[in-house]
Design a binder for these strands. Structure first.
Lengths: 353, 353
DNA sequence: CATATATTGGAAAGCGCTTTCCAAATTTCA
DNA sequence: TGAAATTTGGAAAGCGCTTTCCAATATATG
């Protein structure tokens, strides 16, 4: 239906080969006079190369696949932004899949069908931003293994068990430990952990980091509550937590001013922490006076939050850029290690009045 | 490099045609015994159909292109989520482009290169979620016009001047007017408008809605300040606004309690409103006691904000779903009109102590 | 049992490009 | 000026599929 190269060639009075060489970047460049004729014809007819046909002929598609959990989650959307930026620099298009979306093939995990779709479209690379599940579907691994063997590049955030895949390690454990340590430093002694979904590595590593740092100080968390990795999950887990017997809140609300810090809630990510703050407010608890809260990621959204959320900052957009660089640049420099930093704000650990 | 259909056919001892018919949904279904053999062979070899080749042969790609401004903006990422959901139901993959990203072809707007890329990949449909610019690049329109003529579907959020394109009208003007009216109802009389970027239709329509409703009540806004369509833009515009002579704030801070409402800031979207609130806090102004604030969109992020932001709710995820439905369902029902609702929260207009 | 009617598998012609050879034309150099 | 080296355009063979015909069976009908 669209204008094709044959028509451009005919209009310009040259062969298909010449037209192709002029318009779609070949090593050989036809004579300037001819080239101009071809370009003029293409312009006049409104020719747009068929990328599918090019992909077939060149056996490279110019596509990069990005797998996230939930594109509406600021963590992923910020990473996606970084990926897009680098993809554009490399003249690649990004194919997006979210694994939190129902309705895919019934016979498999969402991750499996996303990966299979990308493999089917022969993306040049696949970036797995969604945290690997603890029990990786072996079909995903074997599909990706074959994909890699066939020349595809796979880069995963965090670790992966897939041989040949590149991984961009994230300081989840270390960051969580550093954050907990900073809070211990500020005199906190009573912690509750909103652990997120235990089957996600990201959540698990962070919880491990928290508990390891606490253990090193001889402290055991008063509660470790699992929950969904979103605002609602943080909200629900917090209410559940507050209702546990012996929690140093509620009854004592207001009694902590100037005294020992009360309960400090450590959430596995920022959106959960935000949900936690909402839950605390719904119980009339003040932050940080009655209960303190910390998150993880430093999503851009926090910029406008009050009280400011103490967190561990991950350079999310950079992570996206670097992951895409790894995926697209065959002989690029090895990935710089990702480092984050503890960010103390009013919600926990910041200087108190 | 990958396993191809020829190899599967050989392994199963059938022809290419038969293998194709078994594996890739044809009208004709070979005999069960044969079909099983083919499927077994495919499974064993790890065959994954080459979507590019299929696209070429079928002349339909199974791709849908989504153009947003900034995928990291909750407005767009929420819409994108909805689009993804419907795309998945239709077994389509989504190609994502952001127009806020630099580094594209130097000779054109980001929107133009996004659209051209999608046309090149022969996406079955293109969804334009990014608000149309006031001065539409004619090259974009003509490229899309040709695309439509060649059988492509285009759906744009808001209105569009492209003949043949479907558009999903958003109640920007009406919503803004309703919001302003609700606030007038609550006794507000002094308004400032954070107008966003004047070249974006979305921002312009909202401002028009605000001012029209105010005008209907015989009120003129005290200020209309343009700015970027993000948190930073709201922040900066607010500071600028506060420094204007005669603003009923700062000097009078605290004097409004129980008295007449002070300044009410109307932002063209929620992220700007959030930035505005941060700016107000930085000046020591209380919300809503000293200054009131309203936004637009009701992005999911607001769930955890305090004070709650008064806004006009747009069903963002539905909008994404509906737009995708329009784009993908050739004979679907006509799009239901999108309606929103005024949501009064503490930041402005809610019951006051 | 012969003939008409469905079924079913396969050969081959594309889909719209890229790219390898080739041959023709041009330039270079002795 | 003639032979060798270089440049340049084109013919044609794919890239991995789908799908139209066709021929060959299997089934139904008189």
């Amino acid at each position: 239906m669209s204008v094709k190269l044959t028509e451009v060639a005919r209009q310009a009075g040259v062969s298909l080969a010449t037209a192709s060489r002029v318009l779609n970047g070949s090593a050989r460049t036809p004579a300037p006079a001819i080239a101009d004729r071809v370009r003029a014809a293409a312009e006049e007819l409104g020719y747009v190369a068929n990328a599918q046909a090019q992909a077939l002929a060149r056996s490279t598609t110019g596509l990069v696949g990005l797998v996230v959990h939930d594109i509406a989650d600021p963590y992923f959307s910020t990473i996606a932004h970084g990926v897009q930026e680098t993809a554009l620099q490399h003249r690649r298009q990004v194919l997006l899949a979210g694994t939190d979306i129902a309705g895919g093939e019934p016979e498999g995990s969402a991750e499996l069908s996303a990966v299979n779709a990308f493999i089917s479209y022969r993306t040049d690379a696949i970036i797995l931003a969604a945290s690997r599940l603890q029990d990786e579907d072996p079909r995903v691994s074997s599909a990706l293994g074959r994909y890699i063997k066939n020349g595809g590049r796979v880069v995963a955030l965090g670790s992966t068990g897939i041989p040949g895949a590149l991984s961009l390690p994230l300081p989840n454990r270390e960051g969580a430990a550093a954050l907990a340590a900073a809070l211990l430093d500020r005199g906190h002694t009573r912690f509750a952990i909103l652990a997120g979904p235990p089957e996600r590595n990201t959540a698990r590593y962070r919880v491990e980091g928290f508990t390891a740092a606490l253990a090193a100080a001889g402290i055991e968390p008063m509660a470790v509550v699992p929950g969904a990795f979103n605002s609602r999950g943080g909200y629900d887990a917090t209410l559940e937590c507050l209702d546990l017997p012996g929690m140093p809140v509620a009854a004592e609300a207001g009694k902590n001013d100037g005294g020992a810090p009360g309960l400090c809630i450590l959430a596995a990510n920022d959106v959960m922490a935000l949900g936690a703050m909402t839950a605390l407010r719904s119980r009339g608890l003040r932050i940080p006076e009655d209960v303190q809260v910390a998150g993880f990621d430093d999503i851009p959204t926090l910029r406008d939050h009050s009280p400011g959320l103490t967190t561990y900052r991950l350079p999310l957009e950079d992570i996206g850029r670097i992951a895409a660089g790894l995926a697209l640049d065959p002989n690029g420099a090895p990935a710089p290690g990702i480092t984050g930093e503890v960010v103390l704000r009013e919600s926990a650990g910041a200087a108190r009045g």
